[in-house]
């Protein structure tokens, strides 16, 4: 895999990694690029090109970890992007997954108690995920925006490390959900419907992992540095 650079054609970005489709949408970029390069499309849409590249490369290569000098853009920019992502999860992905799960449930004719357990477990997972997203939207992001606006540390000494708890809990539940279905549940359902549901889960898991990497590697790293500077 090669890293994307600003001279690459925007169309080749999608050909090489189509999972970036929703990612570019979140930037407000839409299809129909003609022969334009990444830099040109970014300029037209008033997007910081370095920022755009850091995001798409982090999505494409899980080992990629943008260097400090690449992180020249404001975290406020990043927060806008992350909020858009949250909205995409809440308004589009989760309802879609739930709809698929309901279809799986409908396809079960008898002995559906296991499937019902799965459905309850999913609801529990969803509630936890929504809580996590809400915590970020209402506590973490405002804290960061405030920090950069006033350039002053909180008097009670709280820092980003305290506020942003880890993603692991929600990740574990999603992986358990997949394990339960793939390894342990009797297959009392329509296969195609279940496959569609599982595919959606896998895609969502990938997307969430990338999203978490962007938060942990780019945003939190940046804020930690800034807090360190302020403490001096």
């Amino acid at each position: 895999m090669e890293l994307f650079s600003q001279e690459d054609k925007m169309s080749s970005l999608i050909s090489r990694n189509y999972t970036l489709l929703p990612v570019i949408n979140r930037f407000g970029i839409r299809l129909g690029f003609k022969e334009k390069t990444i830099a040109e499309v970014c300029r037209e849409n008033d997007i910081n090109t370095d920022f755009f590249l850091a995001i798409v490369n982090t999505y494409t290569d899980e080992n990629y970890f943008p260097e400090a000098e690449l992180l020249s853009f404001s975290p406020v920019l990043l927060i806008d992007y992350l909020k858009n992502t949250h909205r995409y999860y809440i308004e589009y992905v989760l309802p879609k997954i739930e709809q698929l799960l309901n279809q799986v449930l409908l396809s079960c004719k008898d002995n559906c108690s296991s499937l019902k357990m799965i459905s309850t477990f999913y609801q529990k997972y969803k509630a936890e995920l929504l809580l996590h997203l809400q915590l970020e939207d209402e506590k973490v992001f405002p804290y960061i925006i405030d920090l950069y606006k006033h350039k002053k540390l909180n008097t009670n000494g709280s820092s980003i490390e305290v506020i942003e708890n880890e993603h692991t809990n929600v990740e574990v539940k999603l992986s358990d959900l997949k394990s339960l279905i793939i390894r342990h549940m009797p297959p009392n359902y329509d296969d195609n419907t279940m496959n569609e549901f599982l595919t959606a889960l896998f895609q969502f898991e990938n997307d969430l992992n990338d999203h978490a990497r962007i938060e942990d590697h780019i945003l939190i790293t940046q804020v930690l540095e800034f807090e360190k500077e302020l403490r001096k």
Binding site: F121, V172, D176, S179, R183, H184
Partner: peptide
């Protein structure tokens, strides 16, 4: 089992009749 969370293990236990659903508060 490939299951880590307590709630995931609970679902497994119920599915495999190790436990009756009445025993727990779902």
């Amino acid at each position: 089992l490939g299951i880590k969370s307590i709630s995931g293990l609970t679902v497994y236990a119920i599915m495999n009749n190790l436990l009756d659903i009445q025993d727990i508060n779902p």
